[in-house]
Amino acid sequence: MKRIPRTLLCLTLAALTATSATAGSLLNYVGECVPFARAASGIQIYGNAWTWWSQADGKYERTHKPKEGAVIVFAKTARLPMGHVAVVSRVVEKRVVMLTHANWSRQNGERGHAEQDVTLFDVSPRNDWSDVKVWYKDVDGLGGGIYPVYGFIYGHAHAAAELTSRNPDYVGALIDAYVPGSGEPVAR
C-alpha cells in the first residue's frame, strides 16, 4: 500500500474541514468551532478561538454589545484551553442572546456538532457580557460554569441565513421571567 505524504494528508484534511461548514447546511456541520464561526459569520480570522479578539483589532469592529451575526469570543481558560467562538443568532433581550455554534454540547455521545439557537446568559457584574453562562444540552439547562468573554466581533459581510430557526425556543427570556435574581450580577 502506497503511503500518502504527511504534508499532503494534513493539507487535504484542512481543506475538508474548511469546506465542511459550507457544504450543504451549516447545521449538518461536525467539527471545531473556528471553521464553523468563520463560515457562519463571514469573518475571516484563523487560529485558535481565543486569539480572534486580538486578531480582529484594526480589521473588524470589536464591542461589548451583541448583535445578530456577530462572533462572541470566549477567553482561554483551563476548561476552554483554545477558547471558543460562536455566532449570535438572535438578541432576545439585554442580557440574553441565542447562539449558533459548533463543538459545545455532546450530541449522540460526541462533540463537534452544530447547535442552533442556544441560550447565552450575561452574568457579568457590570452587565457588559464579560462573563456568561451557556445552555448545555447534556444537562438540558444552563451549565454550571461561568465563562469569561472578550467581547463581540462585527463582520463586514452578511451572516448565514441559517443562524436562527423560524421558531426559536425563547428559553433565555423565560430565565429572566421565572428564575429569581437571574438578572442580577453573579459573583465568580
Results as ranks from 00 to 15, higher is better:
157 A>R: 15
121 F>I: 11
45 I>E: 14
162 E>L: 06
111 R>P: 03
149 V>I: 00
100 T>E: 03
160 A>M: 03
82 M>Y: 14
54 S>R: 14
93 E>Y: 12
85 V>T: 11
84 H>L: 00
74 F>D: 07
173 A>H: 08
124 S>W: 09
141 G>R: 08
94 K>Q: 13
68 E>I: 12
94 K>D: 15
75 A>E: 15
80 L>M: 08
132 V>C: 03
102 A>D: 02
132 V>Q: 05
124 S>K: 02
49 A>T: 08
151 G>C: 01
157 A>K: 15
105 S>I: 07
92 V>A: 12
96 V>Q: 15
111 R>Y: 14
126 R>S: 13
71 V>R: 08
123 V>K: 04
113 H>S: 11
166 R>V: 14
60 Y>N: 06
131 D>G: 03
101 H>R: 01
164 T>K: 03
46 Y>V: 12
79 R>G: 13
124 S>L: 07
75 A>N: 10
145 G>W: 13
80 L>I: 07
101 H>L: 10
69 G>V: 02
103 N>I: 02
54 S>E: 15
70 A>V: 05
45 I>K: 08
85 V>L: 08
66 P>D: 11
126 R>L: 14
85 V>G: 03
115 E>Q: 12
174 L>N: 14
155 G>E: 04
140 D>P: 05
69 G>H: 09
126 R>D: 15
128 D>I: 10
80 L>K: 06
151 G>P: 00
96 V>N: 15
150 Y>R: 01
162 E>S: 13
76 K>E: 11
174 L>K: 13
124 S>A: 03
97 V>L: 12
146 I>A: 01
